[in-house]
């Protein structure tokens, strides 16, 4: 059982019917994500990286092929609440405090009040937001809001964390810090993470596996296994020869996949 991949896609296809005719968003996607992997999806817009993540989350329905999540279909996995999802915008409810926002999934999933309070405290400290529970979202910076939304996705025991460009709207300094924290959090929780980004350094810094995608039709161009050590990595690893080599390979992959055309 331990050898079975957490996420397994075989010949996955998704075609959207639009007024301008069918759009092939995903074409013949084959991918295995093992337990505890940190997998980044990188590629230009229109390459289907977000669509693929949404398929895993059962927010989109593939039109062909096979996809299993935790040994179930994606839809069953969603109903079993197998994953936490972090969107590009924090999307906190303005009428709830930070603690109230983190509590939201717990309320919906029927945790007891005691358990809710305990978990909120735990995950808020995990994302370095102790003491901010009683604040309202507008009282926090964008980076802190995004951390709160990560805490919200961690509050229940999902083993998979799906993140759709979670730091895309933040400035680079905040992004660096959150990247570092995310790696620590990942090693502390041993979750499997799927991470969509369009930043090469971010993808290389975070991942154990980098999936380079290309557009029209959206497909996987190359899967690069990172040789960087697993677990927390210091930020200045990005200046190392090894890091630059991997980044170069990713860039080459993107170029070969015609990401830089047009």
């Amino acid at each position: 059982m331990t050898a079975a991949p957490v996420i397994k896609a075989r010949g996955l296809n998704l075609t959207f019917q639009t007024n301008d005719g069918p759009v092939h968003a995903l074409k013949d996607i084959d991918l295995d994500i093992e337990k505890g992997d940190f997998v980044s999806f990188i590629g230009p817009s229109g390459c289907g990286k977000t669509t693929f993540l949404r398929c895993i989350a059962a927010l989109e329905t593939p039109t062909g092929g096979e996809l299993s999540v935790n040994g179930m279909s994606a839809e069953e996995a969603r109903k079993a609440r197998s994953y936490g999802y972090v969107f590009q915008a924090a999307g906190l409810y303005p009428w709830r405090t930070i603690a109230g926002n983190v509590k939201l999934p717990l309320e919906i999933m029927g945790y007891t009040k005691d358990e809710q309070a305990k978990r909120v405290e735990k995950v808020l400290s995990l994302v370095d937001l102790e003491g901010f529970g009683k604040k309202f979202p507008w009282q926090l910076s964008g980076g802190m809001q995004q951390r709160a939304s990560i805490a919200r996705a961690l509050a229940f025991d999902a083993e998979i964390l799906l993140m759709d460009e979670p730091f895309g709207a933040l400035d680079e300094i905040v992004r660096d810090k959150l990247n570092e924290e995310l790696l620590k959090l990942w090693s502390a929780t041993n979750k499997t993470i799927g991470f969509v980004t369009h930043s090469i350094p971010e993808a290389v810094y975070l991942s154990t596996k980098i999936v380079v995608m290309s557009p029209r039709p959206g497909r996987i161009h190359e899967v690069i296994e990172s040789t960087l050590p697993r677990g927390p990595r210091p930020l200045d690893i990005r200046d190392s020869e090894e890091f630059l080599q991997i980044a170069h390979r990713v860039r080459e992959g993107l170029r070969a996949g015609h990401a830089y055309d047009e």
């Binding site: 927010l59 969603r78 109903k79 609440r81 994953y83 936490g84 999802y85 969107f87 915008a89 999307g91």
Partner: peptide, 10 residues
């Protein structure tokens, strides 16, 4: 996005 979020919580 907000509706999708709740969908992920089933």
């Amino acid at each position: 996005m907000q509706l999708d979020l709740l969908k992920t919580y089933n």
